[in-house]
Design a protein around this nucleic acid. Sequence first.
DNA 1: TTGAAAGCGTTACCAA
DNA 2: TTGGTAACGCTTTCAA
Lengths: 340, 340
Amino acid sequence: MANENKLNLAGLAKLAGVSTSTVSRALKDSSLIKKETRQRLQALAAEHNFSLNRAASVLRTQKTNVVAVILNLTDSTVQSTSDPFLLKVVGDLNHALNQRGYELLLSNSFMATQDWANYFISSSRADGIIVIGQGKSTTKIEQVADSGAPLVVWGDPTTKTNYAVVGSNNELGGYLATEHLINSGYQRILFLGDPEHAEMRERYKGYGRALKQYKIEMSNELILSCDITSKVAYEKIGSLIFEQGLIFDAIVAASDMVALGALKALKERDVNIPNDVGIVGFDDIAMAELFHPALTTIKQNTEAAANIMVEQLLAQFHGEKAKSVVIDIELVKRNSTRSS
Amino acid sequence: MANENKLNLAGLAKLAGVSTSTVSRALKDSSLIKKETRQRLQALAAEHNFSLNRAASVLRTQKTNVVAVILNLTDSTVQSTSDPFLLKVVGDLNHALNQRGYELLLSNSFMATQDWANYFISSSRADGIIVIGQGKSTTKIEQVADSGAPLVVWGDPTTKTNYAVVGSNNELGGYLATEHLINSGYQRILFLGDPEHAEMRERYKGYGRALKQYKIEMSNELILSCDITSKVAYEKIGSLIFEQGLIFDAIVAASDMVALGALKALKERDVNIPNDVGIVGFDDIAMAELFHPALTTIKQNTEAAANIMVEQLLAQFHGEKAKSVVIDIELVKRNSTRSS
DNA sequence: TTGAAAGCGTTACCAA
DNA sequence: TTGGTAACGCTTTCAA
């Protein structure tokens, strides 16, 4: 047991025989203070393991140096804890924020049920908010935007909003995935995903555009709506094959997790991938290349996205207006599709 | 744009024609205040989207209601962002903390380079610390323990420490994995993992105990030290086979990620799983059952662990002493091993 | 180059 | 049942 009564600025000042103002300034290396005084005080602080009281400092400066990151989940808590893509984004955001001297306060839409701007900003819990995922409804996000609180959203940047959205070009991703399948000789291409979900809807649009461009008729039975978890995808593909047989020879999956669920269902029925059926995923999670066959997918660059999101948020701290940014995506060809 | 000048307790009190003390008490539903007054003030607060200033409140009460969670990473930043098991633990901790009215401040050992107790506790950033992973060195953890700050560590609870460790019975897990392989008729069982890592070392011990018990000679060439990422495991298994051929017929992997890397290397060489080689993983990450064949593994119950960790931490807030707790593990038989 | 002191917004003690 | 007020620990303006 150490610190019975915690050392504060006043205590440190007393020890040093100077005023609190001097110590305060010295610790931020202010040029107002003589260099040797500064060094002496910094050494003293280090020696006593001194650290400033955040609460007092936040109260005084009205600045928290914290950013709230909200996982905006749609269906159930399960998604948060098992979706590696979302967690990858959180990890990258943490890194990007830390590099700029900010800390990450993690929350999700099940926990933060109240008005986000009030809860995080007015209460001085955080200086800004990053929301991951537009989900099926954007009312809570719009509420934050209307409050004027600094906000950046990970989602689909092509849809029009009154707040800054950073995200991949989902429509193009859907298009490239589909085009790759067509060029590889696949004919009956299934779309597997949840079109109610903003980002997935765009991927679906890209799928449609590619089909149209290559003069392939769109067929309703080849559009399979499905929650974005591998378990649901696995079940959906299983029952589709059971009921109608193998009516498709390729799948455009709305996410890698969905693709992997489908892959499992197909392999269990001894369908050969990529010869009988080709599959393209979306995200390029770390595990995509570990699967057998390694998953062809549309890579989302989360590190770049995280940096841009943080920069757009910090811009708002300085009174600038943030803008939506489209992150480049990239088709990563592996072995779940025939080479074109 | 709303709130030009943010409403505070004093402002709200003025609006209501009462004192700040009364509003303060009313908002925490104190029985000191007459019921109707309470309700009136609560309604008024809601109407004005009022929320208390956390910084002021923390400064006054010396209580943050925040817990710092530190990912104690060993090798590189890569591990944090790609290890689904660690992130699952973070997700479960977040859930457990939120349920008890605490928030989670996420950090990792690369960011928090200073003295953790000072940085998080003395500075009033958090009330307590949860460290995920004992890593290869525990000096920073011991520093926190010595400071007397509330602390719980996710790691191996069987090794003796002066702080509370919650974790799985890793030795038993290693034993069960190995025993299952032996009972399924495998003979030359490879251990794949990093024995310098506290938890992995215990799994290794369990592996050794099982071999001994079943009178199978331990052979140094069947102990393959390997960083706990799938990429490294993939490479290690690849070069082992290249150099010495298939000198093993089963693998006890120190984690699922390691197992999956090995699986990929084997499948690429057309080794049949589970007939030619059986594999048992550790963790039971969500993806374990998605693989083909679905991975036999030792399941760690992270939800239960998260709840226990949080309870042990909160106990320390009330002056109680926390104790180390062993979480039950369970062998989950799937298809990467022959059935015994 | 340094110091004094006000004030950030709560909470809780003491008084009424 | 309610109100006045000091105090939490820091930053920063103004004065020296």
